[in-house]
Design a protein around this nucleic acid. Structure first.
Lengths: 211, 211
DNA sequence: AGGACATCGAACCGATCGGTACCATCGGAC
DNA sequence: GTCCGATGGTACCGATCGGTTCGATGTCCT
C-alpha cells in the first residue's frame, strides 16, 4: 500500500483532474472569463473540494500556471537536447517546436503571459517572471556554446522573439510566423557568434543582464 | 456658432473626458478589473451619460483602444520621420522611442495587446489586429528603403521584436530591454539588407505575408 | 420666455461573483 | 461491521456586475 491506493476517491487524482480542467478553461476563457462554479461543473467536483485543494481561485491559478511552466520548460529543453550538439541546431529545434505550437488549433498565445497581463498583481506575474528566467537559462546556454560575445544579452533578445512570436501568432495570424521568427533567431545567433566585429560592429552592446 | 459652442455642457468634451479616464483605468486595472460604475465615478459622469455616448462597456473599450492605436501609430511615424532619410536611423529612432516608453513609471505593456489577450472575442482583438497592420506598414516601408530582400518578412520579424519587447519589459523587467531590442532590430535589418546571400544563406525565407 | 438637450444622482433590475457551511454519502482501512 | 476522510450537492452569504429607468437640475438656442 505504499502507492497506488484505490482507484476512486484519490485526493491526488482529484487534484489532477481539477488542474487539468483549469488549465484548459483558464486558457480558453481567461482568468476572469469563468467562475469557480463553472470550473467545478466542468471538472465534475464540488466547490468545497476545489477550495480544500487550492484554498482560493488565486491558489488554483498559481498551481495551474506553475504546472504549465514546468511542462513548457521541460518540453523546450528536450527539444533542444534532441537536436544534437550544435547550438544553432538546438536553437532551430526550439523554434521549430514553438512554430508547431502556434499552428495548433485553439492556440491563444502563451497562457502564462496572458494570465500575467490580466492582473498586474497576484500569482500570475510571479510565475511569468520565473517562467522567463527559465527560458533565459536555456537560451543563455545555447548562446554561450555558440560563442556569443554576450550570451546573456543574446539570450534576452531571443527571449523577446519567443514572447513576441506568441503574441503576433495569436493576434495577427500564424501564417509564416514560426518560420520567420526561427530565421530571425538564427540570424541573431550568427551575427553574435560571428564576433563583436561584424561588417558593421557587433549586434549587441554591453548592457545589464536585467532583472 | 459653427464650432466652439458653450464652454460647459459640451457633449464632445464629456466624451473626451470619459475616454481619457477610460484609457488610464482600463490600462491600469484591466478590462475586467473595473466596473462601469467605478469608471463613471473617476470620470465624474453618470452611468446614463456614459451609456449614451458609448452604448455599452464594449463600445467604450473599442473607442478607447482605437483612439490609443491612432496616437501610438502617429507617435511612431513621427519618430521615424524625424530621424532623417536613412532607414537604419529611422528604425533606431522607433526603438529609441519605444525604449523610452518601457522605462516610464506605470508602464504595463501594450494596452491594446493586453486588452486583446483578455477576451478572445470582441472589439479588442479586432483593434489589435489592425494596430499591428499599421505597425507593419511603417516597418515595411523602412525595410524596403533599406533594400531588404523581403521587406514584408523583415517587417514582420521586427514587429515580433516590438511586441515581444513590450511583454518582456513589462513582465521580466525593463533593464536594458530597450537597447537590446533596438540592437537586435538593427542587426536583422543589416543581415537582410546585406543581401539574400549571407555567409550562410539569407536570414529570411520566402513565406506568406500572413494574416 | 420657452423648448430642446445634456447631465447627475439614485434607485432598480436580474445575474453572477468568490467563498462558506451543512449534510448525506461512499470508499477504503481496520 | 465500524469508523474516517474525501466527496457531491445545495443552499446561502454579501458584494458587485452591466445595464435601464426616472425625475430633478441646469445650460444652451431661439
Amino acid at each position: 500500500m505504499p502507492v497506488d491506493k484505490g482507484v476512486t476517491l484519490d485526493p491526488a487524482r482529484t487534484r489532477e483532474q481539477i488542474l487539468q480542467v483549469a488549465t484548459e478553461v483558464l486558457y480558453e476563457q481567461g482568468l476572469d472569463g469563468v467562475g469557480v462554479a463553472g470550473l467545478c461543473a466542468r471538472a465534475g467536483v464540488s466547490k468545497e473540494t476545489l477550495y480544500r485543494h487550492f484554498g482560493s481561485k488565486e491558489g488554483l491559478v498559481r498551481a495551474t500556471l506553475e504546472a504549465r511552466s514546468d511542462r513548457v520548460t521541460r518540453w523546450l529543453r528536450e527539444a533542444a537536447a534532441a537536436a544534437g550538439p550544435e547550438p544553432a541546431d538546438q536553437l532551430g529545434a526550439v523554434f521549430d517546436a514553438l512554430a508547431g505550437w502556434y499552428a495548433e488549433p485553439g492556440f491563444r498565445g502563451c497562457a502564462i503571459v496572458n494570465a500575467a497581463v490580466q492582473h498586474h498583481e497576484g500569482a500570475a506575474r510571479e510565475v511569468a517572471a520565473r517562467h522567463m528566467d527559465r527560458h533565459l537559462e536555456l537560451l543563455s546556454g545555447i548562446a554561450a556554446r555558440a560563442g556569443a560575445a554576450e550570451p546573456g544579452v543574446l539570450a534576452r533578445q531571443i527571449l523577446v522573439l519567443m514572447e513576441g512570436a506568441a503574441v503576433v501568432a495569436d493576434l495577427h495570424g500564424v501564417d509564416g510566423t514560426g518560420r520567420q521568427v526561427r530565421e530571425a533567431a538564427l540570424a541573431l545567433l550568427r551575427a553574435s557568434a560571428a564576433g563583436g566585429r561584424g561588417p558593421e560592429a557587433g549586434s549587441a552592446r554591453k548592457t545589464a543582464t536585467a532583472r
